[in-house]
Amino acid sequence: MERQLAMVLDLNKCLGCQTCTIACKRLWTRDEGMEYMWWNSVNTQPGRGTPRDWEDLGGGFREGIPEPGRIPTRREFGEAWEYNHREVFYGENASGSGGGAGQHLQIQGEKPDWGPNWDEDQGGGDYPNSYYFYLPRICNHCTHPACLEACPRKAIEKNADNGIVTVNEDRCRGYRFCMEACPYKKIYFNQAKKISQKCIFCFPRIEQGVAPACARQCPGRVRFVGYRDDRDAPIYKLVDKWQVAIPLHPEYGTEPNVFYVPPIAPPRYDENGEIDELNPRIPEAYLVSLFGPKVIDALVVLGEEMAKARKGEKSELMDLLIAYKWKEMFGGFDEDPAAIEWVKS
């Protein structure tokens, strides 16, 4: 049977700690040619994101027709720059005693003008109504993957058993039509291997019953994992039953399988400095621009259930989102990663 793995991220709980980013980096993108790759990124919203202004780079579909897109440059992703760690921590090139005490941590080489988390915590709005939230992103392992459909070599594959979208590195010839086509700009060109690479939803872990590293390592209990159609597990309940988890930019037409519980904002202050309960600090129009009109319904449901819980009533939804039982977030993929026997190829 064809099945689809999915992820739900509760944006109300994301701390912006980047543990997910680093977990992914350590596991998958440490080889030569992968320095600038962050298959998982976390950006502050509102913000320009990674790669810079990625929402303006095109790709995806409009009314089923492919929308031309542009390949993001390495500068737009942000190059991986180096620091003078050896001088600072080990006193290399330092004269006299004290080693690196007199050294300052400095970027080596050309001064960067962008990076994968460049506009962290800038956000939007004006004091006292400034606001921001974190938006973690991975490849959405789309149901209608623009990357796969653009590739003339059928080098991108969608696994029928779990819906994970991967690049077949033997077939890929580095043409990068996928990078143009992916509207989420979640494919990277490896200059050393001359092929495209992307998030693999940690399929080697999945095969051993272990959740993806970004989900398992998340200290905020932000990420739920599991099959889309598993009615007893949180993904189905959040996406289909409660309909509080929605995809990012559904208008791109790729039908993502990563869903977000939208951020509930505190109320605004009005001109007199009084709390204005009717207007949230994150403008609804801004959330609609990210998640489409369904975000409003989702916020209503979240608000109602929160109110119920506050009154001491039982709310299945709130219990789910609090994630009392951490391992139940993983839809059965709750084996301990330490138990995996890794085979390095």
Partner: peptide
């Protein structure tokens, strides 16, 4: 004649 719709459109 390009082998994918995305390339044809682009």
């Amino acid at each position: 004649m390009q082998p994918s719709a995305a390339i044809q459109v682009a």
